[in-house]
Design a protein around this nucleic acid. Structure first.
Lengths: 66, 66
DNA sequence: CAGAAATGTCAAGTTTACTTTCCATATTTT
DNA sequence: AAAATATGGAAAGTAAACTTGACATTTCTG
């Protein structure tokens, strides 16, 4: 699964740490998601979508065979 | 988080086991999701949405404070 | 009603998401 | 260039998602 987190975060001009605080997760979690080390839980995906006022599907790109 | 899995599955007239096979998870996983014992991973949520041809947001209902 | 099929649910084990801590590298600011 | 800020990423631990296996209960069917 790919995602547009880094792009969206930068377009808002905020740091990883600020986004982390807003979402109530650690800065490392944001970094790990941006760099594809793992996928978010569905709850975190919902929080992220809400934060950016977008749908989960618009932020996270599902790719078959995972 | 609530979900409409049981309702959607029954509307298609299929058993938990059949849905489990289609999604490549165990029958217990389907049962656990239907009965709210835990939430799906985001990958499973995407698979479920694709299976029912709906959006994740239409199947899983996010509720704050989780 | 009897047997079969479907579902509920627990226990124990594995995997993955996430945390905290720590340090290295890059980028910005003075 | 030096100091401060931002990001990358590893290691070790915890929590939650998922597995297999087993058995009990409910629902369907003959």
């Amino acid at each position: 699964m790919k995602n547009r987190l880094e792009e969206l975060r930068k377009s808002r001009g905020i740091r990883q740490e600020e986004l982390a605080e807003a979402l109530e997760v650690s800065r490392q979690t944001i970094g790990s998601l941006e760099n594809g080390r793992y996928n978010p839980s569905i709850l975190l995906a919902f929080k992220i979508a809400k934060y950016f006022d977008m749908s989960i599907e618009d932020i996270f790109i599902y790719e078959e065979e995972e």
